[in-house]
Computed example of a mutant assay.
Amino acid sequence: MTLLLFLEQVLNGLQSGVMLFLTAAGLTLVFGVMGLINLAHGSLYMIGAFAAAAIAAATGSFTLAIIAALTAAAAAGALVEMVVIRRLYTRDHLDQVLATFALILIFSEATRWVFGSFPLYLDIPDALSGSVRLPGGIEYPRYRLALIAVGLTLAAGLFFLISRTRLGIQIRAGESDREMIAALGVNISKLYTLVFALGAALAGFAGALVGAIQSVQVGMGEPVLILAFVVIVIGGIGSIKGALVGAVLVGLTDTLGGVLLPEALRLFMAPSDAAAVGSALASMLIYLLMAVVLIWRPHGLYGMRA
């Protein structure tokens, strides 16, 4: 493997990681603040992608598509929290898992009923099409660079929101002692709805952005949900910083493993066998990474000790 190809794959891993962070950040906010296991979070990712693809096809505007994705995902998240999730806060995790798994089935079938079973496609805007030459002679897609920039900007915005604003103080206080902040006059129901809608909007935004580089189809949120859970376990439940670090680690591990392992195995077996075995082993690397982190730090890289 050449150095340029390696650096290009590092950028691909970073882009994958920051997009995964947008989904994992909403999931860790919901789990950290509400103590809720939300298996339907991937469905909100899917809703954002489908809303963006539908509006882009109808209007031809990528900006309107992104606004539609944010609005649809946030509205769906707020509605789900008020109608379903609000009744599960005092229930055990098994009830939460069963209820949110039912939501996955409902959202999947509703999306298939509205949009059909065939995938939709979201075009990259003209201003971000093509590639740019980076230092060292790397030709890299302009849209993927924009995804990295947007993801890191939103990460900085989330850090500021959580650590420097009044809403962030309420969110952190709600994570520590929800009864106390309710006694101090904070409307805990509105706070929970806002946090859930914010997490849903982040997931929908990620779905819309990623939908421009892959097809938009029913069920696309479930693989992302699994990776998001891996991210928050690695980074530490309830930690935005941990979600970012964990997402980048997962993105780099998945991308580089898929390239480096087949290359290494070609030294010992035929190229076709090396590609197949290397791909299978690469898909296991992120879970091996999670296992190593949990052995070293059972609460995650930035999670609080019990």
Rank of each mutant, 00 (worst) to 15 (best):
I124S: 08
H93L: 09
G136V: 07
A74M: 12
A75K: 03
L122H: 04
Y140I: 00
V114M: 05
A127N: 04
L147N: 09
L134S: 10
A156K: 02
R91G: 04
W113F: 14
V83M: 14
L152F: 14
S117F: 00
S163E: 15
A99P: 06
V80T: 14
Y89M: 07
R133K: 13
F101V: 01
F107K: 05
G77C: 09
L154V: 15
I171P: 02
F160C: 04
L122Q: 02
T90V: 04
L134G: 11
L79T: 15
G130L: 09
L105E: 10
S108H: 11
I104F: 08
P135F: 12
R133I: 13
S61P: 01
L154F: 11
R164P: 04
G136K: 07
P141Y: 14
R86G: 10
Y143A: 05
A76R: 07
E139M: 05
A102I: 09
V84P: 02
G77S: 10
A68H: 03
G137W: 09
L128G: 02
L79W: 12
D126K: 11
I171Y: 05
L158R: 04
V80Y: 13
E81R: 08
S117Q: 12
A73P: 05
T100I: 11
A76Q: 08
E139F: 12
A149H: 13
A68P: 01
V80H: 06
T90A: 15
T111M: 04
L145C: 07
L122S: 06
W113Y: 13
H93C: 03
L152D: 12
L105Y: 07
A73F: 07
D123H: 00
R166T: 15
R87D: 12
R87G: 07
A72R: 01
W113E: 12
L70I: 15
F118Q: 15
V97F: 12
Y143L: 05
A76K: 03
E81M: 00
R164Y: 02
P119A: 10
I148T: 09
T100S: 06
T100H: 11
A68D: 03
S117H: 01
I104V: 14
L128R: 10
T100Q: 09
R164F: 06
T100L: 06
A68E: 07
